[in-house]
Design a protein around this nucleic acid. Sequence first.
RNA 1: GGGGGUGCGCCGGAGUUGGAGAGCCGGGCUAGACUGUAAAUCUAGUGUGUAAUGCUGAAUAGGUUCGAUUCCUAUCACCCCCA
Length: 376
Amino acid sequence: MKFNVIHTDTSCQARAGILDTSHGQIETPIFMPVGTRAAVKGLTQFDLEEHVRAQIILANTYHLYLRPGIKVIEKAGGIHKFMNWSGPILTDSGGYQVYSLSSMRKIKEEGASFSSHIDGSKHFFSPESIMDIQKSIGADIIMAFDECTPYPCDYNYAKNSLGLTHRWLDRCFAHFDNSPAIHNYPQILAPIVQGSTYEDLRIESCKYISDKNAEINAIGGLSVGEPHNEMYDMAGVCTNILPKDKARYLMGVGLPENILECISLGIDMFDCVLPSRNARHGILYTTGGVIHIKNAKWKEDFSPIDPSSDSLYSQNYSKAYLRHLFQVKEILASQIATAHNLRFYLWLVETAREKIINNTFDNWKTTMIPKLTFRL
RNA sequence: GGGGGUGCGCCGGAGUUGGAGAGCCGGGCUAGACUGUAAAUCUAGUGUGUAAUGCUGAAUAGGUUCGAUUCCUAUCACCCCCA
């Protein structure tokens, strides 16, 4: 239940650390695969553990509340047992759904009401109920209930929304009972910085969040369509203020180059649907660049997907075969591509950690980014 | 061999029956998008082209007509029935 920075790179703000959770230690910087509905689409937990070598995965409170329902997860003995994953888990609060499902929800001071995207039924979430639900789900790290603002966002809207997010945050902490009653282990409650792309709001929010003295501080409301430079600017504003001895989690980021840039700004934790979703859509990330595997140019390329990868999938399956699997819509296409992309992301952060410890992160990052963004 | 029917774009449908369309719906193909997952999804293009209000086009070749995918003739292909 503690975060320790073990080394900060001498050439930038990148840090290597260790985060203790109720289900094990996480070496940072880390990328967390997203498994919204208690499943990383296309992968078994054995793939995640042995192949991808994920250290922690995400799930989503809103989606699990709707299906299978909280009672089922309680009866299963918590989400770890339910999904057969014994490592650390983080649940997002549903704050992102306040943004992504904005057409089917209404926000009030008390909380947010949703019409279910599945059957239209009405549901109401308050900071208090979200804390209770996340307690029942039983993830190691749980997120405060916030409003993720869209981009672009009017200043007054962002300011008012930030006030609401802060009041909801106080209610989350007031209601959060960390006695290990239900699943017999403690959880970490992480507050979330908002403030859209406005520096003054971000500063105000970071100060407000820092007072909670949480082991993890999250930065939300970025990677919602803003230019990369604005994302980096805002992340940098936040890491300058958020306490150095606490973990920093940049929610929803991102592309490989986004992750390297933000590590150099002092971010420790990332999650993003891109490697898994784009894998299913035929986009592969490699050390040599981005491959659109469905493109006709790969039809007769029998070379490995990524010969330099440490993944057995990427070394042994050919580009032509994987393209064929996409052409004929075989489930195996998604499985191989997802395994490849997520292993690549984990390799990326593992290597970043090594470079940080050797004080060579910044140089490595500078040489890597042109390669990562190259379109093969 | 005789009789009947049907033929359009890469493929399959629907529809027009003298005032027409490089048009509709699927599929395929070719690209693009996706950042705390309403996403194995969505968008676009798919005859030709000097890019245009252009050209060619409804099996093929003729004919009738102001005008033909539509009507007529012949041929070809496929399907059904009879022998």
